[in-house]
Design a protein around this nucleic acid. Structure first.
Lengths: 339, 339
DNA sequence: TTTAGCACTCATATATGTTGATTGCTAATT
DNA sequence: AATTAGCAATCAACATATATGAGTGCTAAA
């Protein structure tokens, strides 16, 4: 357990470092609130905090920098969560309330709003489709060789795809297909669109392979697609820690790897808001970054995940308060009178 | 007009510089084909070429670098276009023939193929929708307050969007709407989906505003959306000229600006393949890059534009031959026996 | 327990020297 | 008249030395 003054020192250092990105010296925080003592005293405290693992020194004659443990302590114990302004609350409300009709888009809008306010990069991923239940399937004949399939799920998600055939099809065929597919799939999880179904329809129901195969394949493909959405990809490049070309390149490459992003968003959801600081990230590539994520859900329905990715010295107070607010708004339990 | 040896020298310098990204010295090209003379002679030629504006010197004791004028001369007069290998031809054919069914996707596939082969960044933009003619409109009732609209155009383009209503709608309403819209819009340019139409339907045909307004607005929106597709965005970052953080950041920021990209692809199409070298680009931001574009069209139907963006010292020979080949393949006049 | 004082450390900045690639010119050669 | 060898001059790039100063850690006094 840290005594009161050590907490103060740690907090001051974390906050100063978040702001300046420069190692913090004993002088720099001497005049901070609640620290009315000399730099020498602070140096002593700093030395102890370092021994306990909360701080690090880049080199002997530099100031101190928070360690992962330091950030963690700060986030868990010291953070003050009221760093969201009234203007921001207003802005968020506007953005979200305007467009509540597009269920797929809402996560993206939330994600871009977060990026705008925090100036970090955000990643949004749609709901993991394979947990969803098919509510309805529509087939629409477009022309003699093209059909559109529309899949509706219980979460309100809509996936649509165009299917092309090598032979002509008729409105009648589409009708019976539509009936058949709905009959087999309504109320079933979306993963039931698979090879066995194709086999069943061809072998047992004696539909033509040329007809069924493209339908199943295309629907399967579109259903499995994960839609990842990046916002503010270049924002981090403005930060001083990205002044090394090495790091900047690295970051851009990370963002390019969609799978990594998806993984990142899909790990562990113990709390409503999850914070991973530097080395706490499972992926090696992310160990220089901090990540804050939350799931957008209504009831127990997963509607997507939003993550923010920033430097280890990200402004946790702001990020977390913004995330909490948006999460509350999205997930419906908003009893906040913002206007 | 340049004499034969000057041409040789210019060509050697351009090609060497494209390969190495280092200023080219008189020694370096002494043993090039058709240049059996001493470095001193080459130096004399180089000095003259510089005076004429084809070459530049970064500083006194460095080699020469081609100027924009130099590249231009090279592209117009000296370039040999057979820099596409058999493997590449095979690869392209495979990629393109595999997926000729998705009309929207084809431009993107072509674009990603080009990026893979050339190792530059490519940008693809869909056909400019507002020239297209509506062939058919389908409305599909999804549930009591959601409808999907599908628009088919003469180029085979399909746009679809979900429309939500504030009041319940019936299958019957959708039927008459569908009839009405098709009646008014079939054979019309896509730009006819506009405010006057809304006004007409509401005022003259006495449809409910609550019904018509969301339909028109949403369809208008989806039709106007420009779909820009980037491929290999990080590839250029590997090139030595992007070793300056300044340039790298600048590049990433450029790619982020969708409008700029769209503009870039939509300027001037005098030739089938257009080459803009450095300062020749209208946009200030692009003056350190070269851009090669071509339009994907069948007959006089515009199906999209593909552009490649690379350093001024891009491998024009390769890029142009790949682009020409793909353009030929896409645009149908392929009388090349590749297999 | 706190703090003033001071020697020590070390990244950063600046100046200075060295190297080597490359040019441009001149004079000799073809 | 055109080509080429030879050589001084140039200058970025690298390496090395020197100075600066911000910041610490320790000691001893308050």
């Amino acid at each position: 357990m840290l005594d009161e003054r050590k907490k103060r020192v740690l907090q001051a250092i974390v906050e100063e470092y978040i702001q300046t990105a420069e190692p913090v010296s004993s002088n720099a925080i001497m005049n901070c609130e609640g620290l009315e003592c000399s730099s020498a005293t602070i140096r002593n405290e700093m030395a102890e905090l370092e021994k306990m693992g909360y701080l690090e020194k880049p080199h002997t004659s530099a100031g101190r920098v928070p360690s992962a443990k330091g950030y963690r302590y700060y986030v868990d114990e010291l953070l003050q969560e009221d760093k969201i302004t009234l203007e921001e609350i207003k802005y968020i409300s506007e953005k979200l309330e305007n467009k509540v009709n597009q269920i797929e888009e809402i996560t993206q809008i939330a994600s871009s709003t977060i990026s705008e306010i925090t100036h970090y990069t955000t990643v949004a991923i749609g709901p993991s489709t394979n947990e969803q239940i098919i509510e309805n399937i529509k087939f629409v004949l477009l022309n003699s060789r093209m059909m559109m399939a529309v899949i509706l799920t219980d979460t309100g998600l809509v996936k649509e795809t165009i299917i092309k055939f090598d032979e002509d099809i008729t409105e009648n065929q589409v009708q019976t297909l539509s009936y058949m597919f709905n009959n087999k799939l309504k109320g079933q999880p979306i993963t039931k669109i698979d090879k066995p179904l194709e086999k069943y329809l061809v072998d047992e129901m004696s539909y033509s392979v040329n007809l069924i195969k493209p339908i199943i394949e295309q629907m399967k493909k579109v259903v499995e697609e994960e839609s990842i959405h990046l916002e503010g990809a270049t924002k981090l490049l403005e930060l001083p820690e990205f002044n090394s070309l090495e790091v900047a390149k690295n970051f851009v490459n990370i963002l390019d790897e969609k799978e990594l992003m998806a993984d990142m968003l899909n790990t562990g959801f113990a709390q409503d808001i999850n914070v991973y600081i530097g080395e706490e990230n499972e992926k090696e590539e992310l160990k220089d970054f901090s990540i804050v994520t939350f799931k957008h859900r209504i009831g127990n329905k997963d509607l997507g995940t939003i993550g923010i990715i920033g430097p280890k010295r990200m402004d946790y107070a702001k990020v977390i308060s913004v995330m909490k607010y948006i999460s509350k708004k999205l997930n419906g339990n908003d009893n906040n009178k913002s206007e």
